[in-house]
C-alpha cells in the first residue's frame, strides 16, 4: 500500500512539473504565431555577382537578372542594388534592341521585392506590381518539389482582364528569389542560378 502511495505521489509531482514546463515553453495565447515569409531575404540581401536565368516554357527565350553592384548607402538611406536585365534568344544569344540589356537601380522602398517589367523607366512607379495574396506552396522544377511562397500580383501596366501575375519565391534563389513567374500567358522557369543560397 505504501509503495503504491509513493508511486502515485511521484506521478502527481511528475505531471505537475510537466504541465509547468509545457506552459512555460509556450508562447502566450495572444501571440500564437504561424509561418514567417522572410521578404528581407529576397532582393534586399542580394549580393554583387548573383545571377538568375529564366526560360519561357513556350518560346524558350531567356531572361537573366544579374546583381551588378550593391553600393554602400548614404547614412540613413535605403540600400539599393544595381540590377542588369538581359533578354536572350533560345540559344542564349543577346536579343537586339534597346531594351535587351538594361541596368537600373533597384530601390526596395519604391520598387518592392519583385522585378520591374520596365527597368528602362525605374521612376514609373505606377507600373510596380501590386501584392494581392501570399501563401505557402510547392513547385515542381527540374524534377524536384520545392517549398516556396506563391504570391498573386497585379500588373497595373496591363489591361484589367490580363493583369494577373503569379510568382513563386524561395529566399534561397539568388537576385529576386524567383523560382517561377507567370505573366501574360507566359511561364518563366528558373534554369540557372549563381550565388545566393542556390
Amino acid at each position: 500500500m505504501r509503495a503504491l502511495i509513493l508511486l502515485l505521489s511521484l506521478a502527481v509531482i511528475g505531471l505537475a512539473a510537466s504541465i509547468v514546463l509545457e506552459a512555460h515553453g509556450r508562447e502566450p495565447y495572444e501571440r500564437r504565431a504561424g509561418p514567417r515569409f522572410e521578404v528581407g531575404r529576397l532582393i534586399a540581401d542580394a549580393r554583387p555577382g548573383e545571377q538568375a536565368v529564366y526560360r519561357e516554357q513556350g518560346s524558350l527565350e531567356l531572361t537573366a537578372f544579374v546583381v551588378e553592384a550593391a553600393p554602400p548607402p548614404a547614412p540613413n538611406a535605403v540600400p539599393r542594388k544595381v540590377i542588369r536585365r538581359e533578354l536572350r534568344d533560345r540559344a542564349g544569344q543577346p536579343l537586339s534592341g534597346r531594351l535587351s540589356h538594361v541596368t537600373y537601380p533597384h530601390d526596395p522602398s519604391l520598387h518592392g521585392w519583385f522585378p520591374l517589367e520596365a527597368p528602362e523607366a525605374p521612376d514609373a512607379l505606377d507600373r510596380v506590381w501590386i501584392v494581392r495574396a501570399i501563401r505557402p506552396d510547392t513547385v515542381r522544377l527540374g524534377g524536384k518539389e520545392r517549398r516556396c511562397w506563391r504570391v498573386d500580383l497585379t500588373d497595373p501596366a496591363l489591361p484589367p482582364d490580363q493583369d494577373t501575375v503569379v510568382a513563386w519565391f524561395d529566399p534561397e534563389v539568388p537576385v529576386y528569389g524567383l523560382l517561377r513567374y507567370k505573366r501574360l500567358g507566359e511561364t518563366w522557369d528558373l534554369v540557372h542560378a549563381q550565388g545566393g543560397g542556390a
Partner: peptide
C-alpha cells in the same frame, strides 16, 4: 515613409 519590408507573419491575437 521610406521602408523596406523584412517579413510577414500571421499571429492569433485578441
Amino acid at each position: 515613409t521610406q521602408v523596406r519590408m523584412h517579413s510577414i507573419q500571421p499571429l492569433r491575437v485578441r
